[in-house]
């Protein structure tokens, strides 16, 4: 894989050097960042449509908080503190499964339960990290929450690539069943859908996607990219295909523009912030469209 990244880098840098591409592309970190966002945009954009339908808006934030505990455990177990992937994946997957398991035993709705888990995991993770960070610097917490897209290395990219492939292989054949399982569990079950199993699969999927994106864009931005593009697309779509395609396109464009614009325009804005701002602009635009164009306007209270 690394050889492919290298050849892409050399090609792009060549194009930048002879002026076919903007100056920014001479930097390797820009190219890496763009390659990542080209995966993250479509991935989070597509998953976001289901997150919105399933009302799991704050789930990835909860996973991000859980990752703090994962990092702390990783440090305690002696994993590298810049990328303790084994501990993060293991702990967060357990966390996601525990959340769903609790939900099936308490009948609490997704949003309430996620809220409970989110608070607990933040308190627990932050405490444990502070306890551990007597030895290690506290930047870890910041990097889990906000990521560092310009410091991505090939390991991060490989993990992201593998997780994206897994997500595609799981979601494409199961999209209908997963959506139906939350839209109408009874009808889904009558049609042979393994409703609970699929809910667990989805939770684990969102968990590993979130963890894979953490170091690159951080929990806060994962959250934003799962929500804002899907919400924006929902504003202006009447069909499922419009919803999904819109969300994917908005997420991907926000990522690309968010990486390139600050550099091209010399704005002192961090990449993550720029990505959110671009998608937020699109959201505002679609909201105005929905409010003013009669074909989107809904009536009633």
């Amino acid at each position: 894989m690394n050889a492919i990244y290298e050849s892409i880098r050399v090609t792009v840098q060549g194009l930048a050097a002879n002026g076919s591409l903007p100056q920014a592309f001479t930097y390797q970190f820009v190219i890496n960042a763009l390659l990542c966002t080209l995966l993250i945009g479509p991935l989070l954009g597509a998953l976001g449509t289901m997150i919105v339908v399933k009302r799991m808006a704050f789930f990835s934030q909860a996973v991000g908080n859980a990752a703090l505990t994962g990092v702390a455990i990783g440090i305690l177990l002696g994993e590298s503190y810049t990328s303790p992937y084994i501990s993060m994946f293991s702990f967060c997957i357990l966390f996601g499964i525990a959340l769903k398991y609790t939900q099936y035993r308490t009948n609490l709705s997704n949003d309430s339960l996620i809220g409970v888990f989110l608070s607990i995991s933040l308190a627990f993770g932050a405490s444990l990290l502070l306890y551990v960070s007597a030895k290690i610097n506290t930047h870890v917490m910041e990097s889990v929450l906000f990521g560092s897209i310009l410091a991505v290395d090939y390991t991060d990219m490989n993990i992201l690539l593998v997780v994206t492939l897994i997500a595609a292989l799981v979601v494409v054949p199961l999209y209908n069943q997963m959506l139906l399982a939350s839209l109408n569990p009874s009808l889904a079950h009558a049609r042979g859908v393994r409703v609970r199993l699929l809910e667990y699969v989805f939770v684990v999927l969102v968990t590993i996607v979130t963890v894979a994106c953490l170091k690159i864009i951080g929990a806060v931005l994962v959250e934003a990219l799962l929500l804002i593009p899907a919400a924006a697309a929902r504003n202006v779509s009447r069909t499922l295909s419009g919803f999904v395609a819109g969300s994917v396109i908005i997420a991907t464009l926000s990522c690309i523009l968010g990486v390139l614009m600050p550099m091209q325009l010399g704005l002192p804005v961090p990449t993550g912030g720029a990505i959110v701002l671009v998608s937020a602009l699109v959201f505002v635009g679609t909201t105005i469209m929905r409010a003013t164009l009669s074909r989107f306007r809904a009536t009633g209270v």
């Binding site: 999209y175 209908n176 109408n184 009808l187 999904v244």
Partner: peptide, 28 residues
């Protein structure tokens, strides 16, 4: 079923609903 409490907020046409229910290929 007696009631079909599909989430009204999900942008889906009648066709999308039928596709969602009857096929494996992603309804979108």
């Amino acid at each position: 079923p007696q009631v079909l409490d599909f989430d009204r907020n999900v942008p889906m046409t009648v066709r999308d609903v039928m596709a969602l229910l009857t096929q494996r290929k992603p309804a979108f």
